[in-house]
């Protein structure tokens, strides 16, 4: 019997996330791409503050301990000093879009040649489900107990669109995790983003709409349904920008 699908070897131990959390899938997709692109022994991962900061024990790769939101700055330096290494910033939406807005945008603005993968689960997961800039109108969180009031806090942020239309970067896409087909498409986006980095074309970013059953107070399957019904209409899927390869 030949093995046809197997978790990448660099994911040496199980990820520590809640049942149904999208982190486990996205991390696997990234590591599959890293392996397929031949970067298993030449990759630095920047982890955020948030649920993904628990990743250290699972991955046998260099993981830089990013500060809340500041990976855009730190990974800028890492990539400039190690231009041949695949540098991946793995961040949640709270990390990359709220507290790290300036660093995320400025790294994209400078067209730093690393890849950002953001997990958009419409709340601050690790701290217990507070409102994020991605929280949907009316969504109840622990800091928007009556539902998000966009009059008071603005509309959910679309960072990939901002980056795609504002800056001279290489690649921007948004994927989701609700069906095997969408998961495979998301992997395709991540691979193209990493390829753009590998080719030295420029900054690349993939946002993934990801379920957070725990803080959404739903079953994992209900969470997948919510992404289809509620998030995708607001956060369109697909490539937002692709400058193409060399």
């Amino acid at each position: 019997m030949a093995v046809v699908k197997k978790v990448p070897e660099k994911i040496a131990r199980q990820v520590p996330f809640c049942p149904g959390c999208g982190h486990g899938i996205v991390v696997r997709l990234i590591m599959e791409c890293v392996e397929e692109l031949g970067y298993n022994d030449n990759v630095i991962f920047g982890k955020p503050v948030g649920c993904a900061s628990l990743l250290d024990n699972s991955l046998d790769i260099d993981i830089f301990t990013g500060a809340h939101g500041r990976n855009g700055a730190s990974l800028t330096a890492i990539k400039r000093l190690k231009p041949d290494t695949l540098v991946i910033s793995y961040q949640g939406d709270g990390d990359a879009y709220n507290i790290g807005f300036a660093e995320t945008m400025n790294a994209a603005y400078r067209n730093e040649k690393f890849t950002v993968v953001t997990i958009n689960n419409t709340n601050f997961g690790m701290t217990g489900g507070q409102m994020a800039w991605t929280t949907m109108p009316g969504q109840k969180t622990t800091t928007s107990v009556n539902g998000r009031d966009v009059e008071l806090s603005g509309l959910p942020i679309k960072m990939p669109e901002m980056i795609a239309t504002s800056f001279d970067t290489a690649y921007v896409a948004r994927g989701a995790l609700f069906t095997p087909a969408e998961i495979n498409k998301t992997k395709g986006y991540i691979k193209k983003a990493l390829q753009a980095q590998s080719d030295g074309i420029g900054h690349s970013m993939v946002e993934v709409l990801s379920p957070c059953p725990t803080n959404w107070h739903m079953s994992p399957l209900e969470a997948q349904e919510r992404i289809i019904k509620e998030l995708v209409p607001y956060y369109p899927l697909g490539e937002l920008k692709n400058k193409g390869g060399k």
Partner: peptide, 18 residues
């Protein structure tokens, strides 16, 4: 391999007869 694809926790490994 759909189970492999959708699983967040690396539960599945898929094999095929040689």
């Amino acid at each position: 391999g759909m189970c492999y694809t959708t699983c967040p926790d690396g539960v599945f490994e898929i094999r095929k007869p040689d």
